[in-house]
Simulated assay, not measured.
Amino acid sequence: MSTLENASAVLQLFSRQLSGQSNSGLSFSDVVEHLKLPKSTASRLLMTMESQGLLERDPDSRSYHIGKLILSVASHYLSAPLVDIASPFMAQLGQLTQCTGYISMLTGRDIMVMRMFPGRTYLQVVTPAGSLLPAHETAIGRAILARYTDENVILRFGTDYRVKSLNSPQTLEALLARLAPIRESGVSHACNETLQGISTLATSITNKHRNELLGLCLSFPSPQEGQDIPAGIKEGLLAVTQQLAEKLGDEYWQ
């Protein structure tokens, strides 16, 4: 692989590490083992990435962490105006409902987590900012996709529709059928899809003046079979969404 491809592979290792809820950094041996690189190649690669601000090295543990250059770019990217407007609302909602809150945006066929707001209910697994998840396999992704026409959704996925979760729409036709009621109610629901034991409710909001479209989501432990979603979650999410819609002139919620 080229130096650029190797550098990209190193950065992808950090993404996998975040998914596992670890923030201990990467060691030299981690890079050699996972990328199957000769030690000399790995050493030159890591030194170059460090010198260019892509990585930083902890002086005590000698492990590598994401560098200031990438953090600076990520901070700018994750601070879209609509994200900043919605963040205080979602932070407060997370505390009131005890749920973990998320703000995400659509990028291609995936959603990217822009913000995560921990609630008071402990969830063993959370999805950190910057994570990418299949839009069609998440409540928040479907809440955003419902803003588009069926024709747009078909073009977006083409003939390459793939699903990992058994609880997600298994075909493109099933996805379109799932989007129809979301367009009516504005609320999207997922149960045990991306993560077993986790349910989510989601809505979407747009700032038409800046052509920004985001999804808002609350995540909580899945209710036992036959039980309803805990009181206050749906009501709270709708209240926040409608507040933002009024503030931004989002006619979808009028």
Results as ranks from 00 to 15, higher is better:
Leu166Val: 15
Ile233Gly: 03
His209Val: 11
Ser185Arg: 04
Leu213Phe: 01
His209Phe: 14
Gly232His: 00
Asn211Thr: 07
His209Thr: 12
Ile229Arg: 09
Arg156Asn: 13
Glu193Thr: 04
Thr159Arg: 12
Gly197Ser: 14
Ser219Met: 15
Thr159Trp: 12
Thr159Tyr: 11
Ser199His: 13
Gly226Asp: 15
Arg162Trp: 11
Leu237Lys: 07
Ile154Asn: 12
Ile205His: 12
Ile229Cys: 10
His189Ile: 02
Glu235Arg: 01
Lys234Ile: 01
Gly226Leu: 15
Ala190Ile: 00
Asp160Gln: 12
Ser222Glu: 10
Asp228Phe: 05
His189Cys: 04
Leu155Glu: 11
Asn211Ser: 08
Pro221His: 04
Arg162Gly: 04
Leu175Phe: 06
Glu184Gly: 00
Arg178Cys: 14
Asn207Gln: 06
Ala231Ile: 05
Gln170Asp: 06
Leu238Gly: 06
Ala177Asn: 08
Gly158Leu: 14
Ile229Lys: 07
Asn207Pro: 02
Gly236Glu: 12
Glu225Ala: 13
Ser222Ile: 07
Glu173His: 11
Ile154Ala: 15
Cys217Gly: 13
Pro230Arg: 00
Gly158Asp: 12
Leu218Met: 05
Arg162Ser: 10
Phe220Ile: 02
Val163Gly: 09
Ile182Phe: 09
Gln196Tyr: 11
Arg178Thr: 10
Gly197Glu: 14
Val187Phe: 09
Pro169Phe: 02
Arg178Asn: 13
Thr171Pro: 01
Asn167Pro: 13
Ile229Met: 10
Thr194Glu: 10
Pro223Tyr: 02
His209Asp: 13
Leu155Gly: 09
Leu237Ala: 05
Phe157Ser: 11
Arg178Glu: 14
Gly236Phe: 08
Glu212Asp: 10
Gln224Lys: 14
Thr203Asn: 13
Leu155Ile: 11
Thr200Ile: 03
Leu176Gln: 14
Pro230Asn: 06
Phe220His: 01
Ser219Pro: 12
Thr203Ile: 14
Leu175Ser: 07
Phe157Leu: 11
Tyr161Asn: 05
Ser185Pro: 02
Leu172His: 03
Ser168Tyr: 02
Cys217Glu: 15
Ile182Ala: 09
Thr194Val: 07
Asn192Asp: 15
Glu235Asp: 04
Cys191Pro: 00
Pro223Ala: 04
Leu172Phe: 04
Glu184Gln: 04
Ala190Met: 02
Ala180Trp: 14
Thr200His: 06
Leu213Lys: 01
Glu184Ile: 05
Val163Arg: 14
Leu237Trp: 03
Arg183Gly: 02
Asp228Cys: 04
Ser165Trp: 05
Asn207Cys: 07
Leu175His: 05
